[in-house]
Every structure is written in C-alpha cells, then in structure tokens.
Write a protein that binds this DNA or RNA. Structure first.
Length: 385
DNA sequence: GCGGATCAC
DNA sequence: TATGGTGATCCGC
C-alpha cells in the first residue's frame, strides 16, 4: 500500500516529464577517434601499424585501436600497459599540437552551430536544428565539396549524389592541398569551373538530412586534418553522446526523433553508458538489481525512497530517454585549483614546501588568466599540514 | 558555507 | 620505479 502511494507520486512526475518531452531539436555529439594517438600517428609514419599510447609510464591519456586489442586503455598506467603489450610505444603528449588540431576542427563545427559546446579538445556538442532549417533551401552547390579521393575506402560518403567531374585527376593529384591547406569551401556557383583548374577534381554533394549534415561535418574534418571522427545524432545530448560511441571509430548513428525510437534505443541500454552515471552509482544500482534503463524505470518507486530528490529525478529522466535539448552557454570559469600526487612517506617539511610550491604555481596560473593575485599575500599557514 | 564524494575528460 | 590533474556538482553536516 505504501509502495503504491510512492508510485503515485513518482508516476505523476513521470507524466509531467513525458508531457514536456521535446523531440524538435537535433543534437549532435562529435568525438574524434583516439584523438591524441591519431595525431601522433598522422605526424610520425613510424608509428603506423604499431600499438601506441599517449601519456607516460604512470598514466596514459589514450591508445590507438591496435593497442586496444591488447587491453591497453585510456586512464591506465603506462607500466601496466607495457605488461599487457610489451611492444607498446608510449609517446609523451604534445598538448600544443592537439590544441591546434582541435582549433581546426572547431572552425568547421562553428559553421553548423556557432554556439556549439566543446567538452574537451576532442569532443563537442552541436545543436544543428537551425542549420537544418536553413539548409532545406540551399542549392546543391552550397552543399558541394571537393573530394581529395586520396584514400581508398570512404564508407560514409554521401549516400546519393557523388559527382565525378574528372576521373583521371585522381591519379595526378591524390591530395589537393599539400602544406597548410585552406579550409575547403563549398564551390560557389559554376561560373569558375572552366577557369579554375582545381575544380577539375571530384566533387561530392551532401543532402539536407541530419545524417547528411553529420557526414559532411566528418568529411570536412577528415579532409582538413586527415583524422576521423565519430558522431551521434539524437533529440537530446544524453542520447547523442551514447550514439557517438555506437559506430566508433569513423562512424555515426542516429536515434530518430520519435518517442518509440527513443524508448527502443533506451530499452536494454546499460545505465553505465549514460554520462553522469559512474562506477559508484553503477554499483549501487546494481545492488538493487538495476543494470539497464528499463530496470531503472521499473525500480523508480524504490529509488525515490533511497536517493535524494535530484538523484531520482535524474534517474527518471534517464529511464525515459530524456536529456538536454539546448546547449548550456559556456559560462565563466568558477574556480581554479591545483593538486599533485605525492608519496605517503613525505616528511612534514617536504609537505610544507610542497604546499608552498602549489601556492606559487596556482598563483601563476591565476595571473596567466589575468586574474588578480597578489603574490605577497601567499603565506602558507604553519598549521596547514 | 565547507569538505568529501562522485563524475567527466 | 611507477595508478593524473582540473573543474563541476551534489550532499551531509
């Protein structure tokens, strides 16, 4: 009887959520494949066909797919990875280079959503709803791109129209641009086609659907950086993120925007796949017999008793396949911090000087961002240890 | 309001 | 030899 009452409360909320379900946005999650490792392989042919990881003996940031076959994963200590795969090559990270490549990708993304949200150097969310509307009236030429045709299998070329303007040119110039290639621009009109020799290459036209837009984005990323990206398309960020993983690497997946498709997609989905549900929550829910989203929904009344309001509200969102339909504006930084792992055996004096060092470094970081920080005020209290 | 726990990357 | 660093949020006190 008591359970029944809780079902009433929870289900009333679930009905409200259902009423407010919004399927009118098209959210895309773009995720570069094995980003750091891919950049290193691109710039050092020696590394091709070899298992590599980027990081150090104590921590790896990412590994290429070759290395993953040995069980080498991101966030794994390098020395462990070496045991799994003795031939593994560990490359120290070049963050400046990754930032530069990331910038190139971002310039492309901005064409589809000027307010896109970058989550890191290799991941971003886009809301392409507006772009899709405008695109419906675009002439073909505005959706046409030069194709380099350098590499063999391009599995995700636009499904329809692939125009081959000049078949022979393939052999002459496999790469259109050699150094510092300009971003590929859509070919404007057809006036220049006779004059401009570049236009004698193959061209590709992308359609007007969301899938075609995302193929176009991935195509342009590949052309500009020689790197592949995967992407997910869905009516909200939660689903888009999961989708981008589905056909990784170099693939994409869409959950079409109707309720049944969403529920189908969610049905057997392990809750751990959902961003926001980590190791600890997974374990807690597993102890309650909850592994999939369906089970998460079935246990909704119990969860409303065991968890905080924000938590069970969140769980209910997840189990109904709901998520953000707009991208939160990238606000200002709220905090700046510094931390370092040190051995347990450090003496008190060592800890004290470490503390001072941390303060100095943090002060420097603050100044770098132009934030006020008076170094003279940086006094570490003696009893801070 | 603060510190611990959790999470993502 | 060796298991990171940063920012954000939530929750219980």
């Amino acid at each position: 009887m008591l359970t029944f009452l809780f079902f009433i409360k929870v289900d009333r909320f679930a009905m409200e959520l259902e009423k407010s379900r919004n399927l009118s946005n098209t959210i895309v999650h773009v995720d570069m494949d094995a980003f750091y490792a891919a950049v290193e392989m691109r710039d050092n042919p020696e590394l091709k066909d070899k298992p590599i990881a980027v990081g150090s003996m104590s921590m790896l940031s990412t590994s290429n797919y070759h290395a993953r076959r040995f069980g080498v994963r991101a966030a794994m200590p390098g020395f462990i990875a070496k045991r799994l795969c003795p031939q593994l090559i560990i490359v120290p990270p070049n963050f400046d280079k990754y930032r530069a490549v990331s910038q190139e990708v971002k310039e492309i993304l901005a064409d589809y959503d000027p307010d896109f949200m970058a989550m890191s150097l290799d991941e971003a969310y886009l809301n392409i709803t507006k772009h899709l509307e405008e695109r419906q009236h675009w002439p073909e030429d505005k959706r046409r791109y030069l194709s380099q045709m350098g590499n063999s299998a391009d599995d995700d070329m636009p499904s329809k129209e692939v125009d081959v303007l000049c078949e022979q040119d393939r052999a002459i110039s496999p790469l259109l641009f050699e150094d510092s290639p300009p971003d590929l621009q859509p070919l404007q009109g057809n006036s220049g086609e006779q004059n401009n020799p570049q236009i004698l290459h193959n061209s590709v036209v992308f359609g007007t659907s969301a899938e075609e837009v995302v193929k176009e984005i991935r195509f342009r990323i590949k052309q500009k950086t020689t790197l592949t990206a995967s992407a997910g398309i869905a009516p909200n960020t939660m689903l888009a993120k999961i989708c981008s993983d589905k056909n990784k690497p170099n693939g994409q997946y869409q959950v079409i925007p109707n309720r049944q498709a969403v529920m189908n997609f969610i049905k057997d989905l392990p809750i751990r796949k959902v961003s926001g549900i980590g190791k600890v929550t997974e374990k807690m829910l597993k102890a309650l017999g909850v592994v999939t989203c369906t089970e998460l929904y079935q246990q909704r009344a119990l969860l409303s008793l065991l968890f905080s309001e924000t938590s069970w509200h969140y769980f209910l969102h997840v189990s109904l396949g709901l998520g953000s339909t707009h991208l939160a504006r990238d606000g200002e930084r709220k905090s700046m911090s510094i931390e370092r792992t040190f051995s347990e055996l450090s003496k008190a004096e060592e800890q004290y000087s470490l503390c001072q060092e941390l303060c100095r470094d943090l002060a420097q970081d603050l100044q770098k961002e132009g934030l006020k920080c008076d170094l003279r005020n940086l006094v570490v209290p003696g009893d801070c240890i």
